[in-house]
Amino acid sequence: MLKIENLHKNFNEKVVFENFNLNICKGEFVTILGGNGAGKSTLFNLISGTIFPDSGNIFMYEKNVTFLPEHKRAKYVGRVFQDPLRGTSPNFTIEENLVIATLKNSKRNLKFASNKQNREHFKEKLSQLEMNLENRLNDKVGLLSGGQRQALTLLMATICEPRILLLDEHTAALDTKSQEKILILTEKIKENPEITTLMITHNKEIEKRFGENFIIIQ
């Protein structure tokens, strides 16, 4: 479902990708390994449309998305960053953050943002995180811990079932306890046959735990 053909990308003189090819099937969980500066995050940026390649093509379900801007591609791509602060809006409530995440596939028009129906839906989803967030819908996200924020980010990235989920060292900034929670949530996502996941990690244990398919970028 994700196909990358003859990808080239240079930053000034530095060649990051040369004739790069990749083919990933629907529902697969792929772990991406490689040293710092090898181009793992660049690959994610290319897939999510933050940057565009110099040449080559990127297909998602046969659709050529190589030069589709980031916000148009976001329908298909969910992304969680290493920094828990990047994926949520701190001065808004948990509910408001989730509302924005559910609007990925619909228009942000003049309808009222929150309603009772989706509040129940959010409570149900939040209770699956087992962090007692379901009773804190009206709390500002800035009040949550890093682990809670990252769990919320993961929920926001998957609440609309993206076709591709990009996890960029999403547990690296957390303590071991929060890390474990996020990893359990990640395992649940792994079992979902609709979501294709690419995960970057430097952690040997996580690598062993999730590794069936590896890509090593050098």
Partner: peptide, 22 residues
Amino acid sequence: TRLGLAICMTGDNEQMMKSQGA
């Protein structure tokens, strides 16, 4: 409204709004 909320959040965390498809 949805649009109003999206505008507020763009001011709060633009990166997030981009990855949420705005």
